[in-house]
Design a protein around this nucleic acid. Structure first.
Lengths: 370, 370
DNA sequence: CCTTAGCACTCTCGTACCGTGAGTGCTAAA
DNA sequence: TTTAGCACTCACGGTACGAGAGTGCTAAGG
């Protein structure tokens, strides 16, 4: 077994991967020779393929079928073989244009990012809202909706806003509300949750507490909102592009019975993954902790149900304070170069947009890594 | 052809529908006799079935298969045969409990309604956010996020809130913003969009206009928000419960090749319907204009792609001012009594909840109709 | 006139079989 | 090391067939 990776073998591996990604059918020696005008015969190619198989980069479905890349094959391709491209300038411009059209709406950016990722990479996408670590309070407004209902609008640093209605025990005049809001805003400005909690606990022990009953109700609301915001953002995964992914041949059954069945099974499982982020959970913190674009391929996932899927992820956000994760998910037979450049572009775009929202410490968008 | 609907035939039609809904397999004469202990033989049943088929309520897939209800059969069942039930008190209590847990968050109510509908009816669900006809302005707050960014919080009657960020041409002090917001709030209180537009147009022609450049920017935002709110709500359809629907046997392929293929096709189409509300469009205004629970069965849809689906819809909301639509969508072989009672209950619940939010004219929840 | 037993008929479903074609692995020669 | 040649393997699609389920019809019985 001559287990050396000659130049020629690398090239063959590369075109096998590209070919399979493009056509979704096992690639045969003969057709490689024809299509790529290789200077040697199919028999030679077969020998090389056999060696690449020994090395673990390719497999056989059955004895007389073409070759298919293994997870290791894809990994090697991503790591060493593929050309690192960017989206075309035209595409970049079109995407940017769409984002500027919904300027100033975080929720819409997230939704748009999901849609654009999906469309551009022709696969499903996922986006987590930016998590605000050490969220700092900025401002509170209390607005009377009617006698028994008050709307609290909480503004945090970074342009993050949360609204919540509640009904105070006793009716309050608008003036009352305004003063209460002002009192709390002044006290809590620039504080994090834990600082707020400390302050309140401390105040409660004073002989003449600053905060009354009503204030406490509101403060509860505030801390609760901050906590859930920090937590929920960690969990919540928006996904989109199911239809795009399902237009991949993996999900389109051929005429044979078994395959149709498998397609349906795959389809159902894909739905479950996207619907509640099953299998994606562990990836998020990991991606948050890394720079650049991460690629997780098939069996590299810790979850078994993800064995047939690859995920391309990147962090986005500003500095270390407001960060989220976005990416593409699809079958392991994925156009990695395209997915990666899409994810890279959109993450940097989102970073820039967030940077505009978030005054102060703007860092250049992530560039390093893959 | 004795085309009379005797008591017995009604009963047989009823149990055929129920049986088919439950088992999803064509129902045979023999098994009806066995399962329901009918006092006559399968041959008699066969005769009756043939007559019901003549009347258009049942069909045959092929000569030697059991009977299946036609759309007309379902319609007759819904109209005349089924027992009108309600959700069990236990279920009602559990549902109510969940809603009270997210008290005061319209978005979450909508999401929850979708999830509960889907889970309870074991089908997909759709919910449109309440459309506010003749939305009336209540209050505006302008909050400075940082030097170049201002957050506008628009409050409308009915507890409807919309937020939007924008960057004014020139920086503004918080005090400035407050005064501007106050000025606009005072002027526009209780007005509808068109009234606001009139007022502004009129003001512009005054020798000394009340509103300056900055005001105009903000006012644009306000009218734009009101308009999009009124419109988008008309279009936007939240859907959920795809997975629940896909667990229906229609979408689970048996072992035969053809069936598997059809299942995949169905699945893909269902996805498209839910994803962008294709085929649901015309139903919404129709439902908004009706009282009670609407049922649209298979071929009764104007859209061809909905031929295999039934939809159970109801309006919800307060008075005529703030109304939305919610409902269940699934294969025509649907447990209509259960879907209908679920939709009825949740719509009345949502109406009550909205009523709490919306001061003033609270009407009793819809009860009449089906 | 309604009911029912009996029976022939129809159609699906699952299985087995088989020819075909694609593609490989191996061997032996260049 | 490359390559031509060839045997071998295996999925795919088609056909044939037996079994089983269920109907429609007919003729006899209440």
């Amino acid at each position: 077994m001559a287990a050396t990776l000659t130049e020629r073998r690398l090239f063959i591996l590369k075109i096998v991967v590209q070919e399979f990604v493009e056509t979704a059918t096992p690639v045969a020696s003969e057709m490689l020779v024809r299509k790529y005008g290789l200077g040697f015969s199919s028999a030679t190619v077969r020998n090389e393929l056999a060696i690449l198989e020994d090395l673990g980069y390719l497999t056989h479905l059955h004895t007389s079928a073409g070759r298919v890349p293994t997870d290791a094959g894809y990994r090697f391709f991503v790591e060493n073989l593929m050309e690192r491209t960017s989206l075309s300038l035209d595409e970049q411009r079109m995407i940017r244009h769409q984002f500027y059209q919904v300027r100033g709406e975080l929720d819409q950016w997230i939704q748009l990012a999901g849609a654009v990722l999906a469309r551009t990479a022709q696969n499903a996408s996922l986006v987590t809202p930016p998590r605000a670590e050490h969220l700092r309070f900025k401002n509170l407004e209390l607005i009377s909706i009617h006698e028994t209902m008050v709307l609290a609008v909480l503004v945090f640093h970074g342009g993050i806003v949360k609204q919540q209605t509640f009904s105070p025990d006793t009716a309050r005049s608008p003036e009352d509300l305004r003063r209460g809001a002002g009192r709390i805003s002044d006290q809590f400005a620039d504080l994090t949750v834990s600082q707020v909690e400390n302050l309140v606990a401390h105040d409660a022990q004073q002989p003449t507490p600053l905060f009354g009953d009503f204030d406490r109700t509101v403060i509860d609301l505030v801390t609760h909102a901050m906590l859930t915001f920090e937590e929920q953002a960690r969990e919540q995964i928006h996904s989109d592009g199911l239809l795009e992914m399902l237009s991949q041949p993996e999900f389109i059954p051929s005429l044979t019975r078994d395959d149709a069945e498998r397609a349906v099974e795959r389809l159902r499982r894909a739905l479950e993954i996207l619907k509640n982020g099953r299998g994606l959970g562990p990836l998020i913190p990991q991606a948050l902790a890394s720079e650049g674009v991460q690629v997780i391929i098939g069996g590299e996932h810790s979850e078994d149900e993800m064995r047939e899927y690859s995920v391309v992820l990147a962090r986005y956000g500003v500095g270390g304070t407001v960060t989220g994760v976005l990416g593409v998910i699809g079958p392991t037979r994925m156009a990695y170069p395209r997915s990666i450049s899409t994810v890279r572009y959109i993450s940097s775009l989102m970073s820039n947009l967030l940077g505009d929202l978030y005054a102060g410490e703007t860092r250049p968008p992530f560039e390093g890594g893959l």
